[in-house]
Design a protein around this nucleic acid. Sequence first.
DNA 1: TCTCATAGTTACCAAAAGGTAGGAATTGGG
DNA 2: CCCAATTCCTACCTTTTGGTAACTATGAGA
Lengths: 119, 119
Amino acid sequence: MADIQAGYLACPIRQVISRFGDKWSMLVLYSLHASDTGVLRFNELHRLMTDCSQKMLSATLKNLEQHHLVNRQVYPVVPPRVEYSLTDTGKSLMPSITSLIDWAKMHFDDVATRQLKQD
Amino acid sequence: MADIQAGYLACPIRQVISRFGDKWSMLVLYSLHASDTGVLRFNELHRLMTDCSQKMLSATLKNLEQHHLVNRQVYPVVPPRVEYSLTDTGKSLMPSITSLIDWAKMHFDDVATRQLKQD
DNA sequence: TCTCATAGTTACCAAAAGGTAGGAATTGGG
DNA sequence: CCCAATTCCTACCTTTTGGTAACTATGAGA
């Protein structure tokens, strides 16, 4: 309770929201987490998230890399090969994210169904 | 893994992001969760989140109410008294949110410190 | 020489989010 | 009669977010 008011920088919720509260970050993290090898190339990610533009995927990955949640491994070949994977910090975040996802799976089916009935 | 591609409506991450990925929703939920009685009036919430404008607090609460995460109890007195509290669905979300918060507390002190050193 | 593939970047634009300031409704108290 | 208190709403504006489309670099293969 007390720490809510304890200032902008000290508030963990704001930290979370400002870092992966955007439209695509969690999806990227979860995609990497859920992939067989834990490693995905740019276009592989893009194929998993077709409605994310190249621009946004690129920006999202850059942001996640800057916050040390994903690794970016570049192979100097042509055509370029770049592989993304979760850092240890990124991996440590996944239980919290999957917890959120599990909650959503349990509750949003109802909501979606309810909404469909109403519409 | 497979369900990422399974369409927009079926993706639980998008459901979460679109519902409480905004700037204030999680803060409201957590404020209610962390308060002594579990009940807060509009101005009490506002005092806990002074940098949230009245407009945004009002909009956030309306949104959370529409998604059945908070109850809105109106007492027809003058001046008006409106009390907000978590619904059972809202309460069921809290473990996931506190998990995220705990993760952030563990990891963002480092990040903040690192950033301060670099700046 | 022409094309293809990869992993982006850039310019431009539209939409959404969010801030500020003021209003509105009500009625008990001075 | 006027003001204060509470919970909003509205108009207006700025900032942020995100989309589209085109462009870049490079070397391998036709």
